[in-house]
Design a protein around this nucleic acid. Structure first.
Ligand SMILES: [Mn+2]
Ligand SMILES: [Mn+2]
Ligand SMILES: [Zn+2]
Ligand SMILES: [Zn+2]
Lengths: 149, 149
DNA sequence: CTCCTTTTGATAATCTTTATCATTCTGATA
DNA sequence: TATCAGAATGATAAAGATTATCAAAAGGAG
């Protein structure tokens, strides 16, 4: 299912309502290609809907995260960052620059990676009796811009 | 180089001193097999050296982390956690339980993984002109204990 | 010993996130 | 349509973690 209406389904039957704040947050995450923090999401929401409070943004991102619609990351700058789980970017992993904090999404070699990871998941699940739901792969280092500087 | 004296070398020539608080923190991380938070490290230090303040623990862990002696993680419980980088555990990755927060180190299949990751690193470094220094691989899910409950 | 730099402890300040609680909204039901 | 219970919200207080400050202490070179 595509288009911005694909979320209605996920809310049906979970006892939660797809309210204006929730839909607004989803739309914002759907448009951006960045990894937004709570206050960044709040700032954008605030432009269109000054009545929506930041507590709702915290609660919404937490809910969407628990629902699996949104992925939560800690890249090391002290604030949580969020990204739509099934975005146009598709499945990908991250390069994190220790110099400037830049986050680079990559999905090169992703087929090879997905294949490798899913095999690994199967082996780990069996060996440790651990039911794996998701994974994150982060590479840390120095980006192109920080090298030339 | 092995044994608890292997750190002296790293400090020589970096302009930093291997002081009592720093050596104490290193020894604590060397002994434990857990991923300790700042306040957990502080609590242990405090038993033997009540004079050492928590600010020093923050500063020490940050320094050791920047020196590469210690690895810093955010597992999602709101506090940073630290582990000796070259410990007896060897290179490993993590399973993180969303139920109880338990962290499981694994190094099964690590040879296959290291081989795969180092190839991937090479390709990514070239393609994105990104100098990779380290990586983290986390699998999230439900642990054995949380399943039987 | 003297000077200069590094390190430290105490504590204030900042920043992010969570908890509270009264109010509003929604949808189901009669 | 009027009623009601649960869900959601906004404002704000509270909690927690981390960082900033600053004066004092410690270490090392000469
Ligand atoms: Mn991303
Ligand atoms: Mn570990
Ligand atoms: Zn950079
Ligand atoms: Zn568990």
């Amino acid at each position: 299912m595509f288009g911005p209406h694909r979320w209605h389904g996920k809310f049906r039957g979970c006892g939660c309502r797809l309210t204006l704040p929730r839909e607004t947050v989803l739309n914002i995450l759907n448009r951006t290609d960045k990894h937004l923090s709570v206050d960044e999401v709040f700032a954008v929401v605030n432009r269109s809907y000054p009545g929506i409070g930041i507590a709702t943004i915290y609660r919404t991102l937490d809910l969407l995260s628990r629902m699996g619609l949104v992925s939560k990351f800690e890249f090391g700058d002290g604030k949580s960052r969020y990204e739509l789980a099934e975005s146009k970017k598709g499945h990908h992993h991250h390069l994190v620059c220790n110099g400037c904090g830049r986050i680079i999404d990559y999905s090169d070699f992703i087929n090879k990676e997905v294949k490798f990871v899913s095999e690994l998941e199967k082996e780990l699940a069996e060996k440790h009796k651990f039911k794996i739901n998701s994974h994150q792969i982060h590479f840390y280092g120095i980006c192109k811009e920080c090298t030339n500087k």
